[in-house]
Every structure is written in structure tokens, then in C-alpha cells.
Write a protein that binds this DNA or RNA. Structure first.
Length: 212
DNA sequence: CCAGACGTTGTT
DNA sequence: GTCTGG
DNA sequence: CCAGACGTTGTT
DNA sequence: GTCTGG
């Protein structure tokens, strides 16, 4: 789960709901589905540049990765980061202060007919806010330096936690969810002084799911 | 001590 | 680069 | 994700 | 029953 998102809102709607402005508006196009495995560039906001919306690539590349081909493999496993283990994982533990917000207006999830049976049927759901508005998720970013080319890749991972009531029901074969933030939590997440574990409980987040 | 991992739990 | 499992 | 472990490093 | 190593 947590590897397929949507951002169909126009640029001005994203700006309005996030309180930041696109640095280069032409680089953003509304997108019905972002596939994490394709490491697309999507809008994010960094803690140290709160008023700017930047296009960063989904799939964090850790500092210790040496080559572009290693990066390609490694980052696919860094599309999500478990909030419970941020302090323990080599790829994240020194980046827990690199907070960012990841914009989206939907997440795709697959519900299994019989959880546990890999062959059972799956139904796709689009999970959104009840009003379908843009929301921001908790993320961590990195600037990866390619030693061979000197090129910097700006990239991020999205933090996950235990699924809340609705998400456990939809994502019944894993029961996790992205750390969707309420608007009141946006700035709190961006402040690295705030314990990240304080954002693990998502039971207060209201979402709805429609089959599609 | 040193080799090997370093991540997630997913593919429409 | 740093951690850790064997 | 699921199979397999689930404990200690002490004793003449 | 729950944790964890592969």
C-alpha cells in the first residue's frame, strides 16, 4: 500500500491549502495517479523553506548510496518509512529532522477479498478527505549527491503508521496508512523539535473511500 | 571481527 | 558512512 | 509476509 | 500469543 497517490487539484488550490507557492509552476501538472515505483516528481514543502512548493522525487536515496544504479534499486524500498522505526533505520535515523509535507488529494488502496490469500481478488479504492480537498502527509527529504556526475537528486519518503479505523478496513492486508496530517498539524510536523512519534496516532483523521 | 545490509510489505 | 548478524 | 522461535552466556 | 529473521 501507500505507493499510489493522486493529485488532481490545480496549482492554485494546492497553494491555497498549503500556505505556500510553487517555485516553478510550470513543472506541476495535475495527475490522476502517481505510481511511487516510477519515482515521479511531486509537490513538497520543506521545513526550512516553508513558503515554497518544490517538485521532489518520490523515493528517498540514502547518503550511503554510491551509484545511480544502486540508487534506483535502493530508493524503491524507501517510498515509505515506518514512523515507529525512524530512529533505528540507517537510511532515516540521521534524516528525522529533514521534515517535509507531501501534497495529494487521494490515495489508492487495494482491499483483499480474503486477506492473507495472495490469490484472492482485490478491489481498488480511492481514499480522500470527505470534502475531496488537498491534504498534506508527513515526509522526510534528502539531497543525494551522485559522486560520478556531481548531480543532486532531491527526493523524499512518506511516513507511514498503523492504519486508523477506515484504513484498516480498506488496507486489510497490511493495515498501514500514510501519516495524513490535519491542517492544524502541518507546521507542527515541520518543526523537527516535535517528537515524530506524536504523529503516529491517526484515529482523528477523517477520510472516505470510494471504489474505483 | 568483518561482510553485508541499509527498506517495505505493494504492481493496474 | 554506520550498523548488525553470523 | 510468514515460518519458526520464544533463553542464557552462570555451576566446584 | 507475539516477535523476528529471512
Amino acid at each position: 500500500m501507500c505507493y499510489h497517490t493522486r493529485l488532481t487539484a490545480k496549482a492554485d488550490a494546492i497553494e491555497k491549502s498549503s500556505g505556500a507557492s510553487f517555485d516553478e509552476p510550470d513543472t506541476y501538472k495535475p495527475t490522476a495517479e502517481y505510481n511511487g515505483f516510477a519515482t515521479p516528481a511531486t509537490p513538497v514543502i520543506r521545513f526550512d523553506d516553508r513558503k515554497k512548493i518544490l517538485m521532489y522525487e518520490w523515493g528517498l536515496i540514502a547518503d550511503w548510496v554510491k551509484t545511480a544504479s544502486d540508487a534506483k534499486k535502493a530508493r524503491i524500498n524507501c517510498l515509505n518509512a515506518r514512523i515507529e522505526e525512524l530512529d533505528e533505520k540507517a537510511s532515516y535515523k540521521r534524516k528525522t529532522g529533514n521534515r517535509c509535507l507531501v501534497a495529494m488529494d487521494g490515495m489508492y488502496e487495494w482491499q483483499w477479498e480474503s486477506p492473507g490469500d495472495k490469490k484472492s481478488k482485490k478491489t481498488r479504492y480511492l481514499v480522500t478527505r470527505p470534502d475531496n480537498a488537498v491534504f498534506l502527509c508527513a515526509g522526510l527529504f534528502n539531497e543525494w549527491h551522485n559522486r560520478e556526475t556531481g548531480i543532486i537528486t532531491y527526493c523524499y519518503t512518506i511516513v507511514t503508521t498503523q492504519g486508523n479505523e477506515l484504513m484498516k478496513e480498506i488496507h486489510n492486508n497490511g493495515e498501514r496508512m500514510l501519516v495524513v496530517l490535519s491542517p492544524e498539524e502541518y507546521d507542527a510536523w515541520l518543526d523537527p523539535k516535535n517528537e515524530h512519534l506524536a504523529f503516529a496516532d491517526r484515529s482523528h483523521i477523517e477520510l472516505k473511500a470510494v471504489q474505483m
